[in-house]
């Protein structure tokens, strides 16, 4: 019997459904910090159920660490459901607003780049363009890479939100089973049995 073996650190995508109470974000973030869990991004917003908010948390860690994240999250009263959808077919998106320096001689080239990445221009001034881009993180990264040379004046990214493909939901799939690797309240059966 040995300590939890140091398995590989990977990025995990967690969907967390929480009761929409004051301070719930504080509780979640405080818990992650206290337990030294490494959050890459966290987004919060309303879900399809009134009174229930949905958090998407991108967290870096080994599988067993992320399982511990789930168990600790379940100890918060407001947390209703934690699902690790890392290995699920899912749609993951983030939104970026980018204000890029644009003079008359560079404007056409920037608009061309925006078109390639499907970014929409929302505002313009003599010296700048404001555009919105949605997509996976790699796409946003690539767009920013193309724009960097022109001078990015201001940038905001929302962090990732995600949804599993197909009819199933973060609550249950059509058969009542949970989708994704649900981090169960009760861990029984998830651990190999003594031989």
């Amino acid at each position: 019997m040995a300590n939890t073996s140091p398995s590989q650190v990977t990025q995990h995508l967690l969907v967390v459904l929480v009761e929409d109470h004051p301070g719930v974000l504080n509780r979640v973030v405080s818990l992650m910090r206290r337990r030294s869990f490494n959050i890459d991004s966290i987004t919060v917003g309303h879900s399809e159920q009134p009174g229930v908010s949905r958090m998407t948390i991108v967290v870096n860690g080994a599988d067993d660490e992320v399982e511990q994240v789930g168990k600790q999250l379940y100890k918060l009263l407001e947390v209703l459901k934690v699902t690790d959808i890392t290995d699920q077919p899912c749609v993951a998106r983030e939104l970026a607003l980018i204000k890029v320096a644009a003079k008359s001689q560079t404007r056409a080239e920037i608009l061309q780049i925006a078109q390639i990445y499907g970014a929409r221009v929302l505002d313009a001034s003599p010296n700048s363009l404001l555009m919105e881009a949605t997509g996976g993180e790699d796409k946003i990264d690539a767009l920013l890479g193309m724009l960097r040379g022109f001078g990015i004046r201001e940038l905001v990214r929302t962090g990732r939100i995600a949804m599993v493909r197909g009819p199933q939901t973060a609550q249950t799939d059509g058969t009542g089973r949970r989708s994704g690797r649900s981090l169960e309240r009760i861990t029984e059966g998830t651990v190999a049995v003594a031989e």
Partner: peptide
């Protein structure tokens, strides 16, 4: 070092937190 571990705990977060458990009983 030579033992399999059975761990009975009411808190599932304690299972496997510090010591690898062979048979958890929550």
């Amino acid at each position: 070092p030579n033992a399999k571990v059975v761990h009975v705990d009411i808190d599932p977060a304690e299972i496997g937190k510090n010591v690898v458990t062979d048979v958890p009983v929550v």
